[in-house]
Amino acid sequence: MTSRGTPSRFLRSVLQNGLGRYVCQLKRISIIFSKTHPSSLGVREYIEEGVVDYAKKNPGTVVYVSPQTSTVPKIVAEYLNGNVREEIVICKTPQQISELFTKLTSQSGLDIIRIRKPIHTDSPSIQGQWHPFTNRPPSIGPIKPQKQLNQS
C-alpha cells in the first residue's frame, strides 16, 4: 500500500498540552509477567532494579506490578485520552525494558500513524489568506470590468 492509502493525521497534542503547563499523558502502566517463566527474566530483573526508581521519578503515573501464571510478559500503558497500548516484552533485557518505559512515558497516547507534516498550525495565515485582490488598492469610483480598467 502506498503511503497515501495509510491512515494519517496532523501533528497535534492532547488538550493543547504544553501551552499552559506540561502534563505527562501516561496515567497508568502495568507490568504483567510470570514468576517462573524464563521469557520474563528481564522483566523480573527490571522490577528488582528499576521500577521503584521509575515510580519515584514519575509520581503522576500509577505503576502496577502483577505476577500471573504462564502468561506472556507485557507492559500495558494507559493514556489520559483513553488509549491503551500493549507492548509484549518476551526475552527483553532490563535495559531494553527501561528504554521502553521512557518511550511510553514520553508519548502522548494519540494513535501512532503517519503524520502528514512535521509542523502544524491552527491559523495557517496571520495576514489572511491570499486572494486575487490582495495588495491591490481599492478602486475609486464605479467598478468596471478588468479590460476597461487597463485601458483607462
Binding site: 503547563r21 502534563v23 505527562c24 496515567k27 497508568r28 509520581p59 503522576g60 503515573t61 500509577v62 502496577y64
Partner: peptide
C-alpha cells in the same frame, strides 16, 4: 488502586 490513582491525579497536574 483508588488511593494511588487519586494521588497520581493530583501529582500529574502539578
Amino acid at each position: 488502586d483508588y488511593h494511588a490513582e487519586v494521588q497520581a491525579f493530583s501529582n500529574r497536574l502539578h
